[in-house]
């Protein structure tokens, strides 16, 4: 007798069943579309809101950290420096926050019908990529302004700009895997939902979005920020656009390896929780 599939209590911690996930690729595209369309239904500005948030935050940072605390590196426009950091950081943080409540937010759907649960976090990563692309266009526009029109700064982009997709992969993996771990734990410990918002905020200050790594003088804090796996990516991204930062290939590989390890760990916890979360959520 050959059956199509077997439902049992046993499932390997790393089994992904990619074949099944692929069968549901239409669902993933529709979920992406839903995320994108539903958010800006009944708003006048629609997707323009995607620009507003990074612009406002960058202006605030420019005023506080650039003009008052004078933390921007020399020869780099403050606004561009913060916008660059923000754009990449936002991709990570929005992947993390959105995936971290996968189970709790979708409990009603998951409780009634089966589909590969992983399709939800994956769709989140993809729809955030769309959001990133829009914000990235903004970054490019601002960068072109400083490069071609306002020539008072001498921006020196580097060839590492070609590695931007790689930076994104690391950011996506880090956001996704941390999100998977947190979402799996929140089914049991709801406390984490409160911690996520606050933790992401804290992590931002600990990963050279606002304060350039070179400005951190305290050796302990410097090391902490340096070995934060997000920092090398942000530093490299800033370096690529010629807005300060530094490019260190080994540190970038370090981030990548950490991301892979976290991903394996995230998948394992997700698989474990996926089977029985309906009984605990």
């Amino acid at each position: 007798m050959n059956f199509d599939y077997e439902i049992s209590s046993k499932k390997g911690p790393f089994s992904l069943n990619l074949k099944e996930l692929w069968k549901y690729h239409d669902l993933i595209t529709l979920l992406v579309k839903r995320d994108y369309v539903a958010v800006y239904k009944q708003t006048v500005l629609g997707p323009v809101w995607f620009f507003v948030q990074p612009i406002i935050t960058s202006i605030v940072f420019t005023v506080i950290f650039g003009n008052i605390a004078k933390l921007t590196p020399d020869g780099v426009p403050g606004f561009l420096f913060f916008l660059c950091g923000q754009t990449f950081w936002n991709y990570f943080s929005s992947c993390l926050t959105a995936t971290s409540n996968t189970f709790v937010a979708n409990a009603s759907v998951f409780g009634k019908v089966y589909f590969p649960r992983l399709s939800v976090p994956i769709s989140v990563v993809i729809s955030n990529l769309l959001k990133f692309s829009i914000q990235f266009i903004l970054l490019i526009v601002v960068w072109f302004y400083y490069f071609f029109i306002d020539k008072s700064y001498h921006l020196q982009p580097s060839f590492s700009i070609l590695l931007v997709p790689f930076y994104l992969i690391i950011m996506a993996l880090l956001g996704l895997s941390l999100g998977l771990i947190i979402s799996s734990l929140t089914t049991k410990y709801r406390d984490l939902t409160f911690l996520v918002g606050f933790g992401v905020q804290l992590l931002m200050y600990g990963s050279s979005v606002v304060i350039p790594l070179s400005e951190v003088k305290n050796p302990t804090i410097h090391a902490l920020i340096q070995y934060n796996p997000i920092t090398p990516v942000l530093e490299a991204a800033k370096h690529s656009f010629g807005c300060g930062g530094s490019f260190n290939f080994y540190m970038l590989m370090y981030s990548f390896i950490v991301a892979i390890i976290l991903l394996l760990f995230g998948i394992a916890t997700f698989n474990k929780v996926e089977k029985t979360f309906m009984d605990t959520v």
Binding site: Y5, S9, K11
Partner: peptide, 11 residues
């Protein structure tokens, strides 16, 4: 929707 604790179902 939820996994069994023991045994299996073939479908």
């Amino acid at each position: 929707v939820t996994a069994p604790s023991i045994g299996n179902i073939k479908v």
